[in-house]
Design a protein around this nucleic acid. Structure first.
Length: 246
RNA sequence: CAUUAUGCAU
């Protein structure tokens, strides 16, 4: 089993997803019993392949058969549910995990918040975030990044700014990429001044604005109008830094 | 003790 687990995880790490699934199939045919981590890796491979329905199906079979499951199993399943936009599935998976006496880790709570956010259950995400602040596990830079991203997608600028400031105060910015979310938010809102401000801040932090971040700023400048020379300057800047415009 | 989940696309 250990050898099979290593093989499947190894192919996953190499991005050879179909090979990983073949090995899993072979494992079952040879009568080697998968454990919790085997299923976690296989479900993750299905997620990486975009086969969320199959990932969820495997999860449901594990639930029904009382198969080996751990905190990662439920996290991986919640991720799959979120990609299908299944809010109820996320919630039920989380509740079932608690019912089975599994304690959610910080990582698991991050998956849960992100899943709610991506599925459009914003109130649910905020609820979980607040409960983490009150009762733990204490939110980390990823938790905050998820929340900043969500607020920026909602166009709630004050909330996003407040969260950014809190990250700054807590020293959570060093591993983070949240500037991009701020540029994109103001870009989408057509607020050129603030989009440019955050773009500059992103550069000053040493972070490289990605193509979509540059595009957001371009979008705002085009919407504003009369900024063609600035748009071209940004385009040239992108090319100069090796960012091929999409 | 080893393998596995979580933030970023106009």
């Amino acid at each position: 089993r250990w050898v099979y687990n290593r093989l499947i995880a190894g192919y996953r790490a190499l991005g050879r997803y179909s090979r990983a699934l073949d090995v899993f199939q072979d494992m079952k045919e040879r009568g080697v019993t998968p454990d919790a981590s085997t299923f976690c890796v296989v479900m993750d491979v299905l997620n990486k392949e975009g086969r969320f329905v199959e990932a969820v199906q495997m999860f449901r079979e594990l639930q029904a058969a009382e198969g080996p499951m751990d905190v990662v199993t439920f996290s991986t399943a919640m991720y799959a549910f979120s990609k299908m936009g299944d809010k109820l599935g996320i919630q039920q998976a989380y509740q079932d995990m608690l019912k089975r006496g599994i304690t959610p880790s910080l990582g698991c709570m991050n998956v849960l918040i992100n899943a709610y956010s991506k599925a459009g259950n914003y109130a649910g995400a905020v609820r979980v975030f607040q409960s983490m602040r009150a009762k733990g596990p204490s939110p980390d830079f990823r938790t905050f990044s998820i929340m900043v991203d969500m607020r920026s997608k909602q166009g709630l600028a004050e909330e996003a700014e407040a969260l950014f400031e809190e990250m700054e105060a807590k020293g959570m910015l060093q591993d983070s990429l949240v500037w991009g979310a701020m540029v994109q938010m103001y870009g989408r809102m057509g607020d050129v001044r603030r989009a440019k401000l955050w773009f500059r801040r992103m550069c000053q932090s040493g972070r490289e604005p990605t193509v979509p971040v540059c595009n957001s700023l371009l979008f705002a400048m085009l919407k504003e109008g009369g900024m063609h020379s600035e748009c071209h300057r940004l385009l040239d800047w992108m090319k100069g830094r090796g960012h091929a415009p999409s």
